[in-house]
Simulated assay, not measured.
Amino acid sequence: MTSTPANDVWLPIAADEIEGLPEGLDYRFWDGGPDYPADPAHCAFYVVPYMKGPEVAARPLKGMDAVRVVQTLSAGIDHVEPGLGLLPAGVQLCNAKGVHEASTAELALTLVLASLRGFPAFAEGQEKEEWRSGFYPALADKSVLVVGYGSIGAAIEDRLEPFECARVVRVARSARTTGRGPVHAIGELPRLLPEADVVILSTPLNASTQGLVDAGFLAAMRDGALLVNVARGGVVDTSALLAELESGRLRAALDVTDPEPLPVGHPLWHAPHVLITPHVGGSTSAFLPRAKRLLAGQLTRFAAGEPVGNLVLTTS
């Protein structure tokens, strides 16, 4: 099919692998490689390659003079934001709400349970053929604070419900009421942190959350509390967290770090009472089916001239 100006769709998944794509658009496969599949000036709908970093995400933007929609396959948009100034006004930026909730919430619960129940020590004991029996903390009867109560935060609470927690406290940018109860404003954290046994971070990374978990935040957490980060590494001040871990006062389970990937020799690797996974919250078998459904739905609406979903912002 011959390309027509501003009719191309750049996809990081081959078009023939996605059911339900509308006709009338020219699909180009690009997963972040050095060569572009076509002239960026002809791209109308750009799907950002998944987990390729900000340099790859932003590289073609300066040539996309006629693009109308930029679609991420991640819940966060922080890797795209540095390149938004390269775009013309009126471009719609959409995220992947609905794709990562199940997987990220699964991992959040996995990190909580593995850390509380001592699984890192058990794995080490198995390697050394040591039988490390004893009593370990349970999630039951614990107070859990979820910081970042969007769709992922709500999915985390869904999975906390069967575990008989003493309570789940919700925090978001601004206060509101849900069917489950109140969502507290982020300004209430100094009052809420001392009451939590487990603090789960699921907030987006932006100017207001960069370094949110600083020395003051951590100092407000009760002794022995567990910090779980499935948000972005930049939400946490790594130096401040290291100080608390090395003192033995707090514990942490981290799917994301700052810097990331965590370099060889970084002290966080071997800090006491920390469990680290390599940013795998969304990269599971659940990702592709949900991502394909999202893209088919978004492109069907786009081809029909209907509003796209998951709109985060429009460039100006």
Rank of each mutant, 00 (worst) to 15 (best):
T178V: 12
D141G: 14
M51A: 14
P5I: 06
A123F: 14
P194G: 11
L86T: 11
T203W: 05
S3H: 08
V9A: 04
V235W: 02
L201N: 05
T238K: 00
L242A: 03
F29N: 02
L227K: 08
I152P: 05
Q126E: 14
V213K: 03
P278S: 00
T2G: 10
A121T: 14
T2P: 14
L73I: 01
E246H: 11
A57E: 12
S133P: 00
W131P: 08
V171F: 00
D16F: 04
G125I: 10
I152Q: 06
R180I: 00
P54N: 01
V236L: 04
G211I: 10
K52E: 11
S3A: 11
P182Q: 13
D35G: 07
P12C: 11
C165Q: 06
S174Q: 15
S174V: 13
D255G: 01
E188S: 15
H42P: 01
P272Q: 09
G233C: 03
E195Q: 15
A196M: 11
E188R: 15
S133K: 12
T178Q: 12
A154L: 02
L226P: 01
A41Q: 09
L139I: 15
R159D: 00
E306W: 06
E106P: 08
F119D: 09
A286R: 14
S239W: 01
R59G: 07
E101F: 07
G224V: 06
P37I: 12
L145E: 05
G179N: 12
V235R: 02
M1K: 10
F119H: 13
A303F: 02
A89Y: 00
P88R: 14
G134R: 11
I276E: 02
P261G: 02
V80M: 06
A138Y: 11
P137I: 13
P190W: 02
D141W: 14
I18W: 08
P267G: 07
P49M: 01
G134F: 09
V256L: 04
G125D: 01
S115I: 10
E129D: 13
L11V: 06
V274A: 07
F119N: 11
A225F: 04
L241G: 03
L189P: 09
D16G: 00
A6S: 13
P12D: 13
L107Y: 10
P263L: 10
I152D: 13
R222Q: 14
L268C: 12
A75W: 02
P60R: 06
V70Y: 05
P60V: 05
A175L: 08
A66M: 04
F163W: 13
P88D: 08
R293E: 15
T257D: 00
R251L: 05
W269T: 06
P263W: 10
L61V: 09
Q210T: 13
L11K: 02
F217S: 04
P137D: 15
I77S: 07
